[in-house]
Design a protein around this nucleic acid. Structure first.
Lengths: 143, 143
DNA sequence: GAAAAATTGTAGCCCCTGCTACAATTCGCC
DNA sequence: GGCGAATTGTAGCAGGGGCTACAATTTTTC
């Protein structure tokens, strides 16, 4: 109840980490789609992630519980302030990783895919290194 | 079955991808522990990943089904040939990612953590870029 | 060699993600 | 306005990963 708890927090996170990743993916997608279409529906997310609408509905239910999303039944999704902030943060990370991969020579297609996989696993420090190196590589063409 | 499949392959993998990741983590750990201790027991993996032995047992059951591991009840774990190959491949990737992060300035501790998160999400192409840049940065100290 | 400790296995629970099938609601079009 | 299509919701199943509790087996220790 005491030491074991603090201790086990790390694994607790193993489980919830995954949840956090999908949360970030979802709010970012919602933000995206809202910007492009004016609103974001369940079906839009289902298409974007290529999963059934049921999977989306369940994920959204979780995001609601976590206070990232709101919505009325049969109505489009809305982000809360927290949701928007998370989306913005996710987007920044996404961009940094993507631009970094491009800068080191990864093709557009592969960079797009790898970025999705990587973005949730880079620490702040690594992100900073990515940023710095991206700029360095852009200025310095010494191949 | 046709177009929908090719398209959805990336996402279909979402589920099994995760399984593949843990498979790689497990066989690599088993290989590690065997090298260090001469044998690998369930409890060793439980400690390494900081999860209960039950979680390990279940994961191992899956690895057995997939033909990566063998074992008799109450006996240490053994890798199959496929298991050893996967472990070797995982280790190569791990090393490349880790050395790359170190080369671009990430600290040992952070590199260790980030590598674990990233290693399963870098494509062959990205890995090649990592390798090349690592060597370039090592030879060229133009900071 | 037997008791205690460590290790492994099994049962049963939770949560997340994925699905199909079917019901309900909204939307679009005539 | 209403009917069909599209969208959303709900029920229920599979499977991975996490756990505790308890049973079985092996290992250690005296």
């Amino acid at each position: 109840m005491t030491s074991r708890h603090t201790f086990s927090d790390r694994h607790r996170r193993t489980r919830s980490d995954h949840a956090q990743e999908t949360a970030a993916d979802y709010v970012e997608a919602i933000d995206d789609i809202q910007a492009a279409e004016g609103r974001c529906r369940v079906i839009d997310l289902a298409r974007r992630f290529d999963v059934s609408h049921v999977t989306v509905t369940k994920a959204i239910a979780r995001l609601k519980r976590e206070g990232l999303v709101t919505s009325e039944p049969y109505r489009p999704l809305e982000l809360t302030e927290a949701g928007r902030q998370l989306a913005a943060k996710a987007r920044r990370t996404h961009t940094i990783v993507y631009e970094f991969l491009r800068a080191i020579g990864v093709s557009e297609q592969v960079a797009a895919i790898d970025t999705e996989g990587i973005e949730h696993h880079v620490s702040r420090q690594t992100l900073d290194c990515f940023l710095e190196l991206t700029q360095r590589l852009r200025g310095d063409q010494s191949a």
